[in-house]
Design a protein around this nucleic acid. Structure first.
Lengths: 313, 313
DNA sequence: CCGCTCCATACCTCTAGAGATATCAGGCGA
DNA sequence: TCGCCTGATATCTCTAGAGGTATGGAGCGG
């Protein structure tokens, strides 16, 4: 790429003169005297190396060189005016692009409402939304390929990142409908000791995985994982086939499968957190906007299960 | 249209830094020291009103405002580089647009060869070709809406315009095939006195019209025009129907109609001229190129008619 | 011929910015 | 801790150009 040769002020004067085809009128339109305009055009012509205007008695016309330069000058001036407006809008937080990563299960809880509210308040902002499990979200936040992460069980020791809990929800047992424990309203964790488990891999969400395993340990057993699945929807489908049972965040009740029963657990004090994450020193105003939207938008899903939701045997 | 706010040199530096994301490397690439680059970017940021780069320990990244400005800056710089190259090419005669007007009958003579040769020699030049009769061509040359005119019988008294004869051709009589005179190889003009004529209106080509009328007058009669037609092809079609006879430039023999006979005339000394016209003081190098091409490209159509061309009764 | 219009040229002042050198401050790694 | 890397800041010189005023030359019309 070479250095630009033509000054924009001169190109602007050129365009105005090309429209007026009269040095006096163009000078008045530019708010200057005629001789300085004459000099400006001369300087531009010297830089191009050819006359851009033909000066005849009684009229000024464009030369072929001038006719070639005019559309390019117009386009460039317009490009820059647009780009400057867009840069200012982005800088002030009225426009721009916000890149959001989210864990799949959050599509069942906070994501829809948050996106709706944000779009309503900031229609000029383009949202780039990508599904990613927790660990990849943390990496993407650090390397700046996303601006916002929506995830579960945020880490406590990320130096560059900050997190804020949006909501907490209890766990539920996920059982095949025909499972003997499905007949109960609530399941004691110890009762699950004899059943194989279907769980997400630790790598997908280390803290959530460890929390679930920890609950089982507190109940006196280590879950025997028969199958891993990255998505909670897949977990439910495998449970439905009778492959095993699971422990999951309560919001997955929204996944409605005939052959799956969701039951409250005892002890029921444990909760899993949903959080928004961002780079601590990120000054992007859109990030601040989204955090503000999250703070005003806190749906409560800690209500008890409603009758009719589960497939009763 | 407002004045441009951002200097191109600063935008150029911005683009290079956005590519390198390292002040030292970008400065080296620009051929300056790092502090001046730092100052330049600062000045640009002050003009935009927002930081364009985020400076963190160990790395430089674009802000949202910077990300919005980058494509616009790139486009504008490219537009101007292209426009400047096009202006220079047009100014030096390597490229640009040439607007040519031509009388329809010249499509039967000089036009195809001229266009072919010119395109071969100047492939970068766009040709804008419009069919116009002689009088509109003269007006368009004067008001600069065409650069070149190809016409017949150029005027002798146009102050701003110059003309050069490309070729001359004799006249032929245009007769219905069943006309008694069609049996002759050559027709004396006086023999046409009793027949109605089909001619182009004087307004379409005053001098050609007057030349034809003058030939008849020299032969002792004034042609009785039964019908006018602007195109020679239409003239031939009307002659074919038996509506009348005509006198026309010899090249219209190329219009092949079964029911039309073309015959040489006596006296046969008169010739009609085909000329190229241009504005005398036009400095457009493409005009010079075309005039040069015309000078090297002089097909000779003054040969006698070849057997088999005419419909014999 | 004279007055007016139109664009060019000459000369002037002022300013912004381009680029330089010198230096500082912060962070990182050995 | 020290050395190195990186970007910022301070200060300086120089130049191009932006815009002004005054004037000149050409052409046109009354």
């Amino acid at each position: 790429m070479e250095r630009p040769e033509l000054p924009l002020a001169q190109l602007h004067a050129f365009v105005v003169l090309a429209e007026e085809l009269h040095f006096g009128h163009a000078a008045a339109r530019l708010g200057i005297a005629q001789p300085p305009l004459s000099q400006q055009i001369r300087r531009l012509e010297d830089k191009v190396g050819h006359a851009l205007f033909s000066r005849e008695p009684g009229r000024v016309t464009l030369t072929p060189a001038g006719r070639e330069l005019l559309p390019a000058a117009r386009r460039a001036l317009a490009d820059l005016a647009d780009g400057l407006a867009a840069a200012r809008a982005a800088g002030s937080g009225r426009a721009g692009r916000l890149r959001i990563g989210f864990a799949a299960s959050l599509a069942l809880t906070v994501l829809p409402g948050l996106l709706r509210d944000f779009r309503q308040r900031f229609p000029g902002v383009r949202l780039d939304i990508r599904e990613m499990t927790t660990a990849p979200q943390l990496a993407a936040l650090c390397d700046k390929s996303i601006d916002i992460g929506l995830l579960r069980e945020p880490p406590a020791d990320e130096a560059e990142l900050s997190f804020r809990t949006i909501l907490t929800e209890p766990f539920v047992a996920v059982l095949p409908a025909a499972h003997p424990l499905a007949a109960q309203r609530t399941v004691r964790l110890a009762q699950l000791a004899g059943s194989p488990f279907v769980l997400l891999p630790r790598a997908a969400g280390p803290r959530l995985h460890d929390q679930i395993v920890g609950l089982c340990a507190a109940a006196g057993f280590t879950p025997q994982v028969a199958q891993h699945a990255v998505e909670w929807q897949t977990v439910c489908a495998l449970v439905e086939t009778g492959l095993g049972v699971s422990l999951a965040p309560a919001s997955i009740r929204r996944i409605r499968l005939k052959g799956v029963a969701f039951r409250g657990i005892e002890p029921g004090a444990a909760r899993t957190r949903v959080a928004v994450g961002w780079r601590t020193h990120d000054r992007n105003p859109l990030v601040a906007h989204l955090l503000a939207t999250v703070s005003q938008d806190r749906p409560d899903v800690s209500q008890p299960p409603q009758p009719g939701h589960d497939a009763l045997p």
